[in-house]
């Protein structure tokens, strides 16, 4: 087991994170219960993190879904659960996500604003620590001094921020189109229409 490196972490941030809401919506349609969804998402990231190289991944979203599908199959075989229907490749390829196009995974101004809004919604101390560390670029020690906190407390607040951000990704995604970058749910949606990618 090799620990994920910074280059791969960056790739995950740019190429996979934007598609996480799509993955979760797809898993939800597979009638995988909530806890299992989190388990599968974690394992999918683990597999992507441990790949020898990702140069061959032309379509990160499709690759992410395929990875999750493979994980589900492995678990079901292990648990000897038989009631889940098989998924064929056409279902994977038909599953349309209205999420970020490849070019829009580059962080644009609106996306930055989205991150800013999420941070602004953090508990006060978490936001304060994040702003000093990441916006003003202070060291952990200087941040601690400025806020009259221990360094360990700064660390815990940063962790809390990351943690809250992880939950936000899971719930509504990180793209500037916000919650609307979930998957196309026209098959099950009440209004029968695909969601819009961008607000008016």
């Amino acid at each position: 087991m090799a620990r994920v490196g910074s280059e791969r972490a960056l790739w995950l941030a740019q190429q996979i994170l934007p598609h996480e809401p799509c993955l979760r919506a797809w898993l939800a349609r597979r009638r995988v219960v909530e806890l299992e969804i989190d388990d599968i998402v974690q394992e999918a990231y683990a597999r992507l993190a441990s790949m020898d190289n990702v140069e061959g991944v032309r379509n990160p979203r499709a690759y992410l879904l395929q990875t999750a599908h493979s994980i589900i199959c492995t678990h079901l075989r292990r648990a000897q659960v038989v009631s889940i229907r098989a998924v064929d490749d056409t279902e994977l390829s038909r599953f349309e996500c209205q999420d970020a196009s490849p070019e829009s995974t580059v962080c644009d101004r609106d996306e930055l604003r989205r991150i800013g809004d999420i941070v602004a919604g953090f508990p006060k101390q978490v936001a304060a620590v994040f702003i000093l560390r990441r916006i003003e670029g202070l060291s952990q020690r200087d941040t601690a001094k400025r806020l009259n906190l221990s360094e360990s407390s700064v660390e815990k607040n940063m962790a809390k921020g990351i943690r809250l951000f992880m939950d936000t990704i899971a719930l509504s995604g990180i793209s500037s189109s916000g919650a609307s970058n979930r998957c196309d749910e026209k098959d099950i949606g009440a209004d029968g229409r695909p969601r819009k990618q961008y607000p008016d």
Binding site: A9, L10, I16, Q42, E43, A46, R113, I169
Partner: peptide
């Protein structure tokens, strides 16, 4: 293995968040 994935995901999330520096 889920810990490996959670660690990778947390790191990716932190990298994404750090882009907020450009907001000023």
């Amino acid at each position: 293995i889920r810990r490996q994935g959670a660690f990778a995901r947390a790191w990716a999330a932190s990298i994404h968040m750090a882009k907020a520096q450009a907001l000023g």
